[in-house]
Every structure is written in structure tokens, then in C-alpha cells.
Design a protein around this nucleic acid. Structure first.
Lengths: 350, 350
DNA sequence: GAAGAGGGCGAAATCGTTTGCGAACGTACG
DNA sequence: CGTACGTTCGCAAACGATTTCGCCCTCTTC
């Protein structure tokens, strides 16, 4: 079906091994310029494309980096993927992307699949604490880079956002506006990045001598529906509603704002909302969302570079990289209604 | 490094070929139950994972379907990918996703890459008219399924949305509301789906005896910025502004609505806007967007099923599947301002 | 002009699996 | 009891590339 190296060699009147050398950028210096051109021409004429599968078998390298993401649908992941792709492109490698759908069994299957396909390394962006054993086991077979989410107890190479600071930024912003009754709409603590967001958020409240206004159960999937449900639960509490909320991602924030409307409340007049991720169109929501922006593209790039490094130096020390987030102020936050909260600027330490 | 079939065979005291047969669901009937269990046990104990690369070389099948999409960042593509993945999962195959970034050179490189990696088939969702030659050439080497976008002059298997009807639905909706000055913010005609949207849209206007209010240059990339620019161009025209606009996707619609605000106009009071795709959070924009929803997940499923069929029956006739869109009415459309447009309901033939 | 160095290339092994072929064995049947 | 057949499994050849080894030839150098 496809044209093989053997046919190229025949056409150029050389041995297959010579043809192989002529076509390899690094080995072609062991072959004379004349035959090199002869082979190149034959390959060109026949439209030769090397069989990467055969090459992978022989070399033990497939030029493929496996990537496990949570869900294509979540806008956040797209930027990370693009960063990964941008770096791999430079060297002719390709990402091999799989979804885990926030499911441990699927993540394990994805890892085994990628190993079976002989990916040279794997970048995992969707790890949860419960997946630690599976990931560590796989890390004995091939290099693994954790991205976005970390496993603090392991020594794996990691590139993550500084989510503690992200949570801190959100809390400080609300405190600075004068809010004192602030609630959190959290993602599950089984995921490091959500745990960190929470920790930073609580630290920000503590700086101002505050406690969370009320506490809701963390959700497993950060969807519009769950954001809606959490905010509805908050409003259903007997005590008076909070004046501000911090949602662990933008999609949940959108759902939360829905719940406000349903209850006859308005954002930001009655309740301010801060999101997380700064996804596409976050600035076009009603109201435009104040949120924490993450350098996701850059994170993807770093993860891919790290994977490449680990390939060449399997024993290199595994670094842990942390990238700073940035608060993006838009219209979804305002000072609390009259009579609620402190005077703006009091109680936090900039 | 990894455990091979040879080691499994040794441990089970059988020949590698026997071990291979024992592990193959289809060939295992040629081996006695006793040795089958012996091999299975040895494989289990050693944690054997077949080397899919080696298998691919021998069998000529890699269990991989290449997928070329335009851009991970565009929310629309995610649903298609999920549909593809859902189907491939059933048979242990895996998608191998690449981006083309609306660039012919990159698309060609992606195709060659996937062929080099010996994908069993390729699903192309990002084809443009200019890519016809490259795709047709590749289709001689392995099965190709066109998804989302088509190449009308070819005989390739195709699964697409009925974008003509999508454009028609948008036009009829605006006409029914009473609009008579309607403008289109189009994507490039180099892409079949945009061409079809335009055709349907114009047909819808013609039904009502209308012409487009004014014509702007189609854009190559359907981004927020370009939506903004197109609408600004429309408003800058000397003649009076239109009362409604049809944007070729939701992201452009968001940009267009921005441009309205910039000009002191309001949507839908002054100008109604219809988008396309019904992306995530389209219902949370300001205002919630009336748009055309596409069964994208289903489309992905069909494309993957088609690819699988073509694998087993390379000479099967290549079908062309078309999926119906659906209008989703939200708040971004209203009757035109007083004195502009006809009375609602006049001029179209439901 | 001989010895050594090195460039250029062919021969063959190898990566891990699958599979066509045939050998050995047991069973059934005439 | 011999032939025929079916089951079970080993042997070895693939799949298409890369790479080690070593041969041959040419060029340099004293």
C-alpha cells in the first residue's frame, strides 16, 4: 500500500541501510553528498513517508507524548493543549490526547493505553489524590509530568498554577471592597488545585479576621448546574445571605449568578461574584465576570518542555514549577449593600 | 524496561506464538483451556501490556483514528471530539487529535503526520476548499471521513450539519420578528459550512423578498475581535444601520454585541443578533444569545462509526450524512424599533 | 611506496508481535 | 489395526525501519 524504505533504496540503487542514513538528518553525514541527493530524490519521487510505527519499534521512541486531560468541553483545557502542541511541534513530536472525565478508572485506563501505545512520556493534567497509586506505578515505566494538578506526596515533575495565591487574590479583592460575609463555592478537595484555592481563600479571609459566612459541600464536577445548586443551597440557609461569593471556576460562577436571578437578587448589587480561570467570553457574561486569570498556554509549554527534558535525562531531578495567577477585575463585584460589611479598604494589609 | 510477550511465554513454559494466541480473544480457541489459563496467569503476574507499536507493525493496523480539528480553543469542537471518543472507546481504539489552525500548510502536515503514524483512518473536521487536493491525495492511502465541513466536488464519506437549513432558520426567525434590514457577519466562503450558512440565510431573505441590508467582507477566523470589527464596519456605513444581524458563530456574535455597545446601541432593543453553534454559556451572555444549535456530539459519533465501517469495508460506498440544526430562541432578538421593518409575521411562509 | 586513518557503504541483527505451515498427538471409524 | 481427521502447539518468517560491525577503497603521511 504505502511506499517503503526498501523501494526507495531500490530506486536509488543503494542498500536500504544507506537509504536510511541518507534520510536521517543526523546520520546523513556518514554518506556521500552524491548518494544523499540520489536517495532524497528517489524518496521525493515516490512520495516516501517513513513508517513511524516501524521506526518506533526499532528505536524504542515513538515521538509521541501522551496527554491526559479531564474534558475537552471545559474551555480551560484548550489553552493548555495549545501550549503543549506549540512546543512539541518544534521537534516533530505529536501529543496524543485522552480524556479521563474526572473518573479514576478512566484515568487508569488512559495511562495504560498510552503506555501500550508506547508514548515516550505522559503529561497528566487531570490527576486527583485518589489516582496517586496508579500514577506513581506508571511513573516507573515512563516519564510522567503532572500539570495543573499536583500530587504533593510524590516526587514527580510538576507544573502548576499557584492556586493558593489565586484564592488569596480573590479573597483580598472582596475584602478590600468591604465584604465581610463571603461564601465559597468549592470544587472537591480530592483535587490539589481546588484545595489550594480554598487554602488561599481562607488565608485571605483570616488576614481580615473573617470566617466564611457559611460552608457548602464541595462539588465533584464544576458545571453550570452545580454552581446553580450550590448558590441555591447558600441562599436557602436560614441566616441572612452573604454579600459575596468566590466560585472555583467561571462556569460555576455563571451558574451561581443564575441562582441569584432566580431568587430575585442581582449581581453585583446584592451579591458580588468572583470566578476562576478567565475562560473565553468570561468578559461577555452578564455581568462581565471578575475572575482569576491563569497563564495556561504558558503552563502547557512548560509541561511539554519538561517532558522533553525528562526524555533525554531520565534521571534529571524532577522540578516543581509554579506559575503566578492574576486578578482580572470586571463588573461582577461591587461594595456590599449599605449596612452590610465594613468600609472599603479596612482590614487587609496591602 | 517493559515486560514483553517473550517473558510471559517463558514464564508459562510455552512458545511465544502460543502465548500470543492465548492472549488474543479470537485466536484463543486454537489453544487448550489449560495453557490459556497458564498464559493468562503469567501475563497477569508480570503485568504484561502488549506493545501496540509492534503489533501495529505486524498487523498493519494501529487501532488509531487520526482527527484533524481546527482549534481546541473553539468551544464548538469539543463536543465533536467527545462524540468521536465515545464511539472509539467501545472497541479500544483511540483518537489521535491534531490542530490545523485554519492553515492549509498545517493541515497538510497534520495529514502526513497521521499517515506516518499509520492511523487506520482520518477524520477531518477542518477542511477548506483549498485543501481539496491534499485531502484527495491522502484519501488514496487510507480511509478519510470529512466531518462538519465538506468538499462538494469529491466522493469522500461525509458527516455534516445541514448548515443551509441553519442559515434559513436564522433568517426566517428575524423576518418573522418583522426585520427587513438584516446584515450578515460571515465566515470565509472557503469553508463549506459558512458558504452553506450564507446560502440558507439568503434564501430565507429572498422568501420574504428581501436583500441583505449591506455586505461585509467574510472573515477568515471567527473570533471575538473579528465579530467586533465586522459590526463596526457595518455601523460605519453612511446609510442607516440594520435592525438585525446574523453572525456565523456565537463568538463573533459576542464581539458584534460589543461593537453595538461601543456605538451606544443596545441589543436587542436597537439591533437583534442571532449567533450559531450554541456554545457553552451562550445562554449566559449579555443578552442571552438566540442561536442555532447543532447536534455536534451526535455528529462526532457518526463520523467515528463511519470511519470504523470504512476500515472494514474499504470499498463500501461513501455516504453523505446531513444532520438537522435547531433554532434556540433567547433574548438577543426582538422586533425592530418602531418605524423600522414590517409587522411581525408578514412575509414568510410557515 | 607502505602503513595507518578514515570515509562510504553493504550485510545482517534487531525491536515485539502475529500468523501460515507443519509436526505430533490422540481419537474415531472403517 | 491402519487410515483419516482434529486439536494443540512449536517453528520461523514476516512487518519496516535503524544500527552495529566490518569490509573496501582512497587519501594522507613519513
Amino acid at each position: 500500500m504505502s511506499v517503503t524504505l526498501l523501494e526507495v533504496a531500490r530506486r536509488a540503487n543503494v542498500h536500504p541501510s544507506t537509504a536510511s542514513r541518507a534520510l536521517s538528518p543526523v546520520m546523513s553525514r556518514e554518506v556521500s553528498e552524491a548518494t544523499r541527493l540520489k536517495v532524497l530524490e528517489a524518496a521525493e519521487e515516490l512520495g516516501y513517508r517513513p513508517n513511524v510505527v516501524a521506526r518506533g519499534l526499532r528505536k524504542g521512541r515513538t515521538g509521541t507524548i501522551g496527554v491526559v486531560i479531564n474534558d475537552f468541553q471545559l474551555p480551560y483545557n484548550a489553552a493548555v493543549l495549545r501550549g503543549i502542541e506549540a512546543v512539541l511541534d518544534e521537534t516533530g513530536m505529536m501529543p496524543f490526547v485522552t480524556e479521563s472525565h474526572e473518573d479514576s478508572a478512566r484515568l487508569e485506563r488512559a495511562l495504560e493505553h498510552l503506555h501500550g501505545r508506547r508514548a515516550d512520556a505522559i503529561i497528566v493534567t487531570a490527576v486527583r489524590a485518589a489516582d496517586e497509586a496508579a500514577v506513581v506505578k506508571m511513573a516507573r515505566l515512563l516519564p510522567i509530568v503532572l500539570a495543573v494538578r499536583t500530587l504533593p506526596n510524590t516526587r514527580l515533575a510538576t507544573v502548576a498554577h499557584d492556586d493558593f495565591e489565586g484564592g488569596l487574590l480573590a479573597a483580598r479583592h472582596l475584602v478590600a471592597l468591604g465584604h465581610r460575609d463571603i461564601v465559597e463555592l468549592p470544587g472537591t478537595g480530592d483535587v490539589s488545585s481546588f484545595r489550594q484555592r480554598s487554602a488561599g481563600f481562607h488565608a485571605g479571609l483570616q488576614e481580615a479576621g473573617l470566617e466564611p459566612a457559611s460552608v457548602v459541600q464541595p462539588v465533584h464536577r464544576l458545571t453550570v448546574e452545580n454552581g446553580h445548586a450550590l448558590m441555591r443551597a447558600v441562599l436557602a440557609r436560614a441566616d441572612r445571605p452573604p454579600t459575596a461569593a468566590f466560585a472555583h471556576n467561571d462556569v460555576m460562577a455563571a451558574g451561581a449568578i443564575d441562582a441569584l436571578s432566580d431568587a430575585g437578587l442581582s449581581c453585583p448589587r446584592d451579591i458580588s461574584v468572583v470566578g476562576y480561570d478567565d475562560i473565553l467570553l468570561a468578559d461577555h457574561l452578564a455581568p462581565p465576570l471578575t475572575t482569576v486569570r491563569l497563564p495556561s498556554f504558558h503552563l502547557g509549554q512548560l509541561a511539554a518542555q519538561l517532558a522533553r527534558t525528562l526524555l533525554d535525562q531520565p534521571d534529571a531531578p524532577a522540578p516543581r514549577v509554579s506559575l503566578p495567577p492574576e486578578l482580572v477585575v470586571r463588573a461582577s463585584c461591587a461594595p456590599p449593600p449599605k449596612g452590610r460589611g465594613s468600609s472599603p479598604g479596612v482590614g487587609h494589609g496591602h
